[in-house]
Design a protein around this nucleic acid. Structure first.
Lengths: 353, 353
DNA sequence: GTGAAAGCGCTAACAG
DNA sequence: CTGTTAGCGCTTTCAC
């Protein structure tokens, strides 16, 4: 089975061409008759041939270096579940494909953040770069990177980024819609939404989904109170406190990530609120936090590792010359129902332990 | 600067020997006069030469495949911070050194777990394996692996594992000692210790450290109530509930990992206890959970990523023929003081926000 | 358009 | 003990 992997020469032999030609086909090179190309492709298929990345790299094909960039500010640090999962996925992909990975955290606030990213890929001769939000929607940056001769793939672009580069992500709008439907079906009517940092467009889409669900349910989307958070546990707590002090607190709070939801949960406990009896809270991402807090969070699962892995694959495909328009790969999400959501109880809910 | 990396031929030239000889020296091969070996080593040093892992791999030096094994049972799953961090570190190491990594979770309870591990390395021709607790102290398994011609490095062995293989970890006994001293200095006198799954010897060492600190403080170590947990959030909660129902609850609870501490925290909240006023709780590992719960956990930082990274490095060194007795690499730990510990308050503590 | 030849940097038989 | 000779699987000139 795994006895002897076919080599490029095997393919050449089967296709009746020279090794060079196979190489050309593999790398999207020019000067290959279409008929020949097809023949080669067929042979590749038949032999289930995969290039040996090590050999390719040795032979000179570029630096084989990719970069993964995060916009992490100092205080966004505890959000490390998210970044860990993405890095893990990217590393796995790189390992399998024979690429190196350079992970860099760039403070999103720093004025010269674009330059920092560009310097990074220039100095390390990175052939490709994976941009996470909010860089994923920074069209200017993407264009600059490309001008340097490097390829770009984005993770979770929420808007403009999708029109200018390949991307990977879930359908964030649908994610927001689904979680809202869940809450709506439980009987909730008063909602609040806690968003992430500005410019994180995919998080904004989740809110769009919420609006759509509300409209469908005959409610006015602008009745939703919007809290501007920054994805941190801390911001989740602070904003929730403010929310609860307001004139008419909602019965359901939808957070744009798990960390903020955990913060909201914590503050709610501190105030003696029953979750979900007095307030239902939802997260987003389904990171380990969601299972560790009490009650465990109802959240939207996002396959972070797979997303990053697929981003690497997409990037490498482009490096190998694959042509065509930008492709956005939508991975599936799912509402994970745990115990932080339930029917709103006007008076008080009895806990069923 | 990064213009042209020196090759093995450059080294050979400078040392005045054949390329093969350099290769022998590099790979710890036999049949090299000591004088020549020194000369080569000097040349390597002078040129700051590093082997090109891709080329080496291409040329045939083994499968370049390493395995990372976890003992994760179904319900231990949410402990994924710990495993993620280790895998991340191992992946980084592998990427840098040109090795592949195979990560496998084997249910620790399954009767044929040893066979599962052995099959894994046999079928994938893994050249080396990294064992995490409690496998790290499974001497029989380690010997069996070696019999298959594979090398072993352990992460956090707590006992017998340290005498039969290279290892990486922190000084767990000292970690336990340090956290106990911290609590002692705050005025605590009644302690409880929540241990992890059986066979996790390094966690047991943390308890030894606690005992030592108590003795030093003039207290009797056997006055400490021991709770047998399994590292999960859930077990932390259940055991803490039982503890609090007991005749004389402690004022300080030391948990063998952060997840259990988070569970303990959660239950304490549920019972209206003030943490740390009524009960101080400490974790271990300093995973992101510790910063996300409320109040954030005082815990012992363990450089998990570095540990796994160094384990890969140590493994590869052995593969390259480095000889000598088993080496245990002790990385530094540190007590991270957050807000889950404070002076014990007989009556009630006033929160200072 | 296509192919032949020449390596990339290293290890692995073989000879000496 | 040490050096010579072949490749590993692939990309690149450079001819045809």
């Amino acid at each position: 089975m795994t006895l002897k992997k076919p080599t490029i020469d095997d393919v050449a032999g089967l296709a009746g061409v020279a090794r060079t030609t196979v190489s050309r086909v593999l790398n999207g090179g020019p000067n290959v008759r279409d008929e020949v190309r097809q023949r080669v492709l067929k042979a590749v298929e038949a032999l289930n041939f995969r290039v040996n990345p090590q050999a390719r790299s040795l032979a000179g094909g570029g630096s084989r270096m990719l970069a993964l960039v995060f916009a992490s500010d100092l205080d966004t640090e505890p959000n490390s579940f998210y970044t860990s999962a993405l890095e893990l996925g990217a590393l796995r992909g790189c390992l399998a494909l024979g690429y190196q990975l350079l992970t860099r955290h760039v403070a999103q606030q720093s004025p010269d953040r674009r330059r920092l990213v560009l310097d990074l890929i220039a100095s390390h001769k990175c052939q490709g770069i994976i941009l996470t939000p909010p860089f994923a929607d920074d069209v200017t940056l993407i264009e600059d990177v490309r001008r340097l001769g490097s390829h770009v793939v984005t993770i979770s672009p929420g808007g403009s980024g999708r029109d200018v580069a390949d991307g990977v992500g879930i359908d964030d709008e649908a994610g927001g819609y689904d979680i809202a439907r869940h809450l709506l079906s439980l009987g909730h009517r008063r909602f609040a939404f806690m968003s992430g940092i500005e410019g994180h467009l995919s998080a904004a889409r989740r809110r769009d989904g919420l609006s759509r669900a509300l409209l469908e349910g005959g409610l006015k989307p602008d009745g939703v109170e919007i809290l501007q958070g920054d994805f941190t546990f801390r911001s989740g707590g602070i904003l929730t406190a403010r929310l609860l002090d307001g004139p008419s607190p909602p019965t359901a709070l939808i957070c744009a990530n798990d960390d903020m939801a955990a913060g909201a949960l914590s503050i709610s406990h501190g105030r003696g609120l029953d979750v979900p009896g007095d307030l239902s809270i939802t997260g987003f991402d389904d990171t380990p936090v969601s299972a560790i807090v009490w009650p465990p969070l109802t959240t939207v699962h996002q396959p972070l590792k797979d997303m990053a892995h697929d981003a690497v694959v997409a990037l490498v495909e482009r490096l190998n010359g694959s042509a065509g328009g930008w492709r956005f790969q939508t991975l599936s999400h799912a509402v994970v129902q745990r115990e932080s959501t339930g029917r709103p109880a006007p008076k008080r809910a009895t806990a069923t332990a």
